[in-house]
Design a protein around this nucleic acid. Structure first.
Lengths: 205, 205
DNA sequence: GCGGCCATCAACCATTGGGTTGATCCTCCG
DNA sequence: CGGAGGATCAACCCAATGGTTGATGGCCGC
């Protein structure tokens, strides 16, 4: 079985290579998303172990999409540090066969790689738990408009500036904020921004 | 030269072990701070490679302090993902001989380990740059108290909660906030938090 | 010892923000 | 067709926030 490792940290690449040495053949290593797509096309691995955070360039989700768009695509296993709702959902939506956390024990990694190669899907228990909670807890997703407002909130805008920026009234801004607070389980704009950043609903840059 | 690796991620431990194989003898691996102190006492390594985020139990800074309090203490090299001001300062204050980032190339890691073993200090270029900016930019420095308040701001606390948490009056909280806003060039708590996160003065976790 | 910086507190005031209720209009979906 | 959910707006109230001025005591360094 041939594996392609995609991670921007040399230390992690070396670790995965060392751990997988007895289990499978590590056909190559990529440090960026672009590199990952090129190497997947050239090497035809069975499984791609993909990090989501890849530094500059395309991220792991986009790289997953492109890898799976190749002819005779490999299976893609996400291996990342975070387990945010949006990360998980977007990775699965992109077609990933599994989602593992980096602090998982090596045995779990082996099992997941074997499962992926066999065409099955594999999730870390914490990831499964998070997805389950999403199913139990439906209307908790933010709308596009709400996410847009959150992003501007993070720039420190007042409700008034927000209203002018979006060509809506202050009342509407406040209504959106109330909904956002309810969905995020907070009761202030600052808390909304920090939890949104933690859950990767928005990004600071 | 004997090295002790301290990191809560099995993948990272394996990676460091693999990378260092040709350079030094990896005498042991620890997954928690407590384990790290015990193994440092038992194995007498020359250098301890210490992560700052260690999951439950004592963190890397406290573990560093305790390791350096041992008789015939080893050198401690911090190897972590983040480069926040407070992390760097507290690690150096705890007596760390160096501060590396996990995305550093392996050669830099080798150099730093050799330097640490020789009693010299070693810092990643981004870390050095951050410390240098601290020196160049004196007046805009946040005090320890102000950083503490910022961190709590990021949790979404109100001024009143802040006051109770820190056993000071609301008036004092407001004074601190005014100073923080001035130093960061903002005029709201939300903007203060986001720019502080962007400048890596605090971290969200 | 004096100036500078920090931490602490007070009182005032205008603006902003959060909570509530209720409403209209739209689109999507069963 | 009817309901669900999203986006829009209004009026009300109270609490929280930000801006200002001014004051005290501690500590450090020149």
């Amino acid at each position: 079985m041939k594996i392609l490792i995609v991670d921007d940290h040399p230390v992690v690449r070396a670790g995965l290579k060392a751990l997988l040495a007895g289990e499978a053949e590590v056909a190559g290593e990529a440090a960026t998303g672009e590199e990952a797509v090129a190497m997947a096309a050239a090497l035809h691995p069975d499984v791609v172990l993909m990090d989501l955070q890849l530094g500059p360039g395309i991220d792991g989700v986009e790289a997953t999409r492109r890898v799976l768009a190749l002819p005779r695509p490999p299976r893609v296993l996400i291996l990342t540090t975070y387990e945010t709702d949006t990360d998980i959902v977007s990775a699965v939506a992109a077609g990933a066969s599994g989602y593992l956390l980096k602090d998982a024990p090596p045995e779990e990694l082996f099992r997941a790689v074997r499962a992926a190669a066999a065409g099955q899907s594999a999730m870390s228990p914490p990831v499964v738990a998070r997805l389950a909670r999403r199913v139990r807890e439906p209307g908790s997703e933010l709308s596009a408009r709400e996410t847009e407002i959150l992003q501007l909130l993070a720039e420190g805008l007042t409700n008034d500036q927000l209203a002018r920026r979006l060509f809506i009234s202050r009342a509407t801004v406040k209504t959106h904020l109330v909904h956002i607070y309810a969905k995020l389980g907070v009761d202030s704009r600052t808390a909304a921004v920090t939890t949104a950043v933690e859950r990767r609903l928005i990004r600071l840059d």
